[in-house]
Design a protein around this nucleic acid. Structure first.
Length: 432
RNA sequence: GCUGGGUUCGCCUAGUGGUAGGGCGGCAGCCUGCUAAGCUGUUUGGCCGAUUUGGCCUUCGAGGGUUCGAUUCCCUCACCCAGCGCCA
């Protein structure tokens, strides 16, 4: 099980990394509590050794047909009581240590730039030619062509929901199939995962403490409000915010053979996000929404391969955007924007013509062993076991990619040209 | 939802109130001139010690109870399988 050993083995790097993040994570409290627990643990261990020895003695005497010494049994009862009272000292500290451990930020890769927030992410390359021109926002283009119904969606489901209609819904399907086919050809295995996960697994995939507000929860509402974090709640399920999460959990508590790695998966699923705290941001159209489809790359790898694969995954995403002929740039996410799970993260931001800005389309992370430690995912090489590394990257998030397509491909007469690579899927080359 | 059966090392499987056994696979070593086999050891996680040998704890789905001692008995829960019921 994931333990403080990880912290002690990586102490120097952790400290450096937390400093770089300007994190207020209480590392010293963790170390202090851990030491206290281990001290009591040692005492407990010795007492248990004594109990085992006594029990064996009693057992041997009984086997030879005699009754064991009363004094011995009484002494053993005392040992039991000692164990019991010592055990009572632990739970509070153990709980705290566990909580800290689960939320411990990952050790950053040295190439992660320092920065206070997303405005300080660093551009590392650009692709494609930007045509500076005035186009209407996608919501206007789509409403005119009757391809979307935002008003009725708001009425029946709420703000940030949407109906796609006709050719736009077909375009979405085409886009998904194009992305899936591209990755399957590269050796990825398609996964259609469960859309809800239990809390105990969800918390191994991401730091629930920070992230819980972002998720929709399906639990018995009465029970959920009364019970605490680690207590059992009936139907305590979370709707996934990305298929990354069920794919990570697909191999929880498993041991890979070294030859099975790297294991490359592509997930297809709807994604559900509360977007709490996003009031006012991107409130028009379908850029920031509660529900969308996403094709996601996920890889389990050996530690020594993960940085190479990280580049490969962003490369795959770039290939898809190049084939769609959508101009983009790639940014290296800075410390203030990266979150606790990833050791390094790239975003691919595509040109959104109406806004005349690059906007986030793809997020590509190397989580190193953060998820593997918490989900207990290992591999076996020459009899030695070690934790795997996990990586994830968007291939296509449909709503945002559709926006990029629509605003980059809209014609002066209001029609939309279908990108060449999607024509075979659409069966037509123009919408509207 | 109801009833019954189950959950033991990477996989399969035995087992009982008193040190958890066997097989397969993996790994290490030995042996052997022949398409491979055989033999021996090892194969949950952790603590302490250390030049090395090592010592101890933990682990039979999870948690609790009874007991000197629980994988075994009792209680609660989760999951899997089968049947029944309901239903898309």
């Amino acid at each position: 099980m994931f333990s403080t050993r990880y912290v002690r083995d990586n102490l120097e790097q952790l400290r450096k990394s937390l400093d770089k993040r300007k994190s207020d994570f209480p590392l010293d409290e963790l170390l202090q509590k851990d030491e206290a627990i281990r001290k009591i643990g040692k005492q407990l261990q010795d007492l248990r050794a004594e109990r085992n020895k006594g029990s064996k003695e009693i057992s041997d005497v009984k086997k030879s047909g005699k009754e064991p010494d009363k004094a011995l049994i009484e002494k053993m009862a005392k040992v039991r009581d000692q164990i019991e009272s010592l055990e009572k000292e632990l739970p509070e500290d153990e709980k705290r240590v566990e909580e800290l451990l689960w939320n411990l930020p990952n050790i950053l890769h040295e190439s992660v730039p320092y920065g206070k927030d997303d405005s300080e992410n660093v551009e590392i390359r650009k692709w494609g030619e930007i045509k500076q021109r005035d186009v209407p926002g996608h919501e206007e283009i789509l409403t005119k062509l009757d391809l979307v119904d935002l008003e009725q969606a708001a009425k029946v489901a709420g703000a940030r929901f949407f109906y796609l209609k006709g050719d736009l819904a077909l375009l979405e399907q085409s886009l998904m199939r194009f992305a899936i086919d591209t990755l399957v050809k590269k050796g990825f295995t398609l996964i259609a995962p469960p859309l809800l996960l239990k809390r105990e697994y969800y918390r191994g995939v991401t730091a629930l403490g920070d992230f819980e507000d972002a998720l929709y929860r399906a639990a018995d509402p009465k029970e959920a409000s009364e019970k605490k974090e680690l207590e059992h709640v009936e139907d305590d399920l979370f709707l996934i915010s990305t298929s990354e999460h069920p794919m990570a959990v697909l191999y929880a508590d498993k041991v890979f053979g070294a030859k099975e790695l790297p294991k490359k998966l592509v997930g297809v699923s709807p994604c559900f996000r509360r977007e709490a705290g996003a009031h006012g941001k991107d409130s028009k159209g379908i850029f920031r929404v509660h529900q969308f489809y996403k094709i996601e790359q996920f890889v389990f790898s050996k530690p020594e391969d993960s940085w190479k694969i990280h580049e490969e995954l962003i490369g795959n995403a770039e290939e898809i955007f190049q084939k769609l002929k959508l101009p983009y740039h790639v940014v290296n996410i800075c410390t203030g924007d990266i979150g606790v799970v990833a050791a390094k993260k790239y975003d691919l931001e595509a040109w959104v013509a109406a806004q005349k800005k690059y906007r986030e389309m793809v997020s590509c992370s190397n989580c190193t062993d953060w998820q593997a430690l918490r989900l207990n995912i290992k591999y076996d090489e020459a009899g030695k076991r070690n934790y795997v590394h996990t990586l994830n990257s968007t291939a296509v998030a449909t709503n945002r990619c559709l926006i990029a397509i629509i605003e980059n491909y809209v014609n002066d007469d209001g029609t939309i040209t279908v990108p060449d690579v999607l024509v075979p899927y659409m069966g037509k080359s123009k919408i509207g």
